[in-house]
Amino acid sequence: MIKLLPRYILSFILLVFLQVFILNNIQFSGYINPYIYVLFILVLPFETPKWFLLFIAFVLGLTVDLFSNTPGMHSSATVFMAFLRPYVLKVISPRDGYESETLPQLKHYGSAWFIRYSAILIFAHHLFLFYIEVFRLSEFFATLARVILSSLFTIILVLISQYFYRRDIKR
């Protein structure tokens, strides 16, 4: 468990950097914006204490907020997602539960499981984020379209990232 710590710290910095300096500057067709930084919450170990999950989600969201001048927006959405994570894990757990020494990643539980897991949480995060950004219901369907399209982009990026660190740890 403790040997994973440097890796997580590194991936925290890397993901925030990627989000703030590259993805925040990219707009597909105007205003669709993927938010890859949620990957950090997705791949935390199963045994992470629940309170720590909320705390680290808040820190992650606030860091992104500080760089994009949106106090509380990303942090509230990320905390919401971290809150859902234990329940989602419980609902979609494989028949014989989660093995110890594994992480919620594609290489351990297969692509079908991982896509389901990440899609639910990413959609929840984006839904919360985009509606709190607009803060009104008058553009309900336009916002919903942005939520769905941005979620799709984020899910694709998250999947690609899984193939990246497939190789680096040999078990």
Partner: peptide, 24 residues
């Protein structure tokens, strides 16, 4: 229920940051 309480606490704090954009 500490998980739920903590969640509500952090969420209220985040949203108050959002609402008080000026003091932020």
């Amino acid at each position: 229920i500490h998980f739920l309480l903590l969640f509500i606490l952090i969420e209220v704090f985040s949203i108050s940051l959002l609402v008080n954009r000026n003091s932020f």
